[in-house]
Write a protein that binds this DNA or RNA. Sequence first.
DNA 1: CTGTTAGCGCCTTCAC
DNA 2: GTGAAGGCGCTAACAG
Lengths: 330, 330
Amino acid sequence: MTEVARAAGVSPMTVSYTYNRPERVSPESRAKVLDAAAALGYAGPDPSARSLRYGATRTLGVVMGEHLTYAFDDAQAVAFLAGVAEVCAERGYGLLIVPTGTGEEDPSRVVAAAVDAYVVWTTTADDPVLEAACSTRRPVVVHGGPEREGTTLVSIDNRAAARAVAAEVWSGTRRPVVLSLPVDRSRETFLAHGLDPASVAYPVTRERLAGYRDAATDLGLDWSAVPVGVCRGNDESDAEAVTTKLLADTPDLDGVAAMSDRLAVGALRVSPALRVSGWDDCHLAGQHGLTTVAQDMRAQGAACASAALGGAATDHGDAWRVVSRASTGG
Amino acid sequence: MTEVARAAGVSPMTVSYTYNRPERVSPESRAKVLDAAAALGYAGPDPSARSLRYGATRTLGVVMGEHLTYAFDDAQAVAFLAGVAEVCAERGYGLLIVPTGTGEEDPSRVVAAAVDAYVVWTTTADDPVLEAACSTRRPVVVHGGPEREGTTLVSIDNRAAARAVAAEVWSGTRRPVVLSLPVDRSRETFLAHGLDPASVAYPVTRERLAGYRDAATDLGLDWSAVPVGVCRGNDESDAEAVTTKLLADTPDLDGVAAMSDRLAVGALRVSPALRVSGWDDCHLAGQHGLTTVAQDMRAQGAACASAALGGAATDHGDAWRVVSRASTGG
DNA sequence: CTGTTAGCGCCTTCAC
DNA sequence: GTGAAGGCGCTAACAG
């Protein structure tokens, strides 16, 4: 900018004004400045210097968890991002996807990102990345959970939704089972009976499990006997393997409450006649006639972005509904 | 940082070293600094100030075109972004999605984004957003086209691929037609006969059209008589409408070369027995038994990011193949 | 191992 | 309508 000022024969301030308040500069000066800028290939004020000066970046940071690319492989995550992007575009904010995935360096990358606020995709309470986002003292909005002081939570009421959908899939069954998303960040596959929700680190998984337990209790079923198959991730083929194990453990199982449509589809691949419910109401649910919990991830993404950028947090607790289809005999 | 230094009773440089080269600071000083930082809620050096000082942001900018949210609605665009994100995560670069969509302000937003390089999703040569990206003098990689001096192009050879797939779908037909993506940024729907590729602003559309023309010539068909239905975007329902118009114009049409699987599926909805080819080999192609052009968008996204961040540009010209399925009688 | 100096590029404030 | 001073927070280079 100094160079442009010299080339144009004016002071740096005039150059600055030319870009920020063109109307306060005489047409001649403006022309001189723009000519000089064109000649020197100066495209405008440096963004970093500007951010430093203003103390704001007009950028929203998004942290999608340990496997960044997962964010683009999962339809729900993509819908969520679409909602975030929509709000960002409206308000002229950049959307910065923070490069997590290495584990080790993730927290420092979060701290070092030039953003005004953070949206964090569901994780565990002890995730160092969440800690890092909060340590920057910038607004943090968490999707799904955990709830944490100083952050805003945007989530449906997973427990109530789980209770409702399990009431349907388990209605009239004797041997209900659960097909679960991971319980903690180690993401191990295992089988348990009557898994205690309190032992589960991911709040979303925990709440859904608690809701399933509620439903079991409502139906007079013994939760401590209910097999829970935990998958490594939201993945059909892993769900197939876990379903196979569940069947070995409980050959007469007759009702599968799955925490996602993809897991449900994995179960159906093993045993197409299974009574099963999913979660999300993605295109798979329609294709396979799955009873499922519908929620609008795009709206939730938009809500997260709005809240992070200073809007009021809209409550999404009740923004779900059970969609009944053939997979539960409907 | 100055405050932390004062609270810790050391100089700002010691604080800086504590964060950037901890090993060069005595354990005691380091402890004092970290204590003071914790007490003051200081999380580390300010990212903007750092970027200003270093002259680099460690952030890659991505411009997805006028409808930002489209980027998340289109499976190909998402796969592309996944590839970009993968490379960014590996190298510790942030991925900034520039908030385009307003039209008017888009170029200035591109200029004002704090990034080290740009990846631009396919557009027209006269797009002000592309101009803006180039004006910043930062490296620019364009996906699909246009080719432009000072930028790197990553693209398959659309013309050759179009020629190959049209050879298949039009083999033995008498009344071939084209179902085209938009020709320019006005994105209007219309019908033309023997549309001249040279009149088309989007390079991707232009090259595919030229390839179809090549195929027509190869097959001894008269290009000037070939109806071309241009859709407003990559959208099934629009394709349905345009196909209906094509059928009104040419009731005996017997071979549809579509520039995307979604357009092809739109055509099939109007007339399920149609001989038709698609493009992209997305999940729709498999579902509907579509003959199509397969290309790996994720790899192309990764290639764009690598090239933008200083790697060599890998050539993707031949990274396509025709997948033959039932929709062309295979 | 630690501190001093200087300046990255910009814009708010205040003069003229 | 224009310009001079100062400082946003940081770190390279160079002492000590």
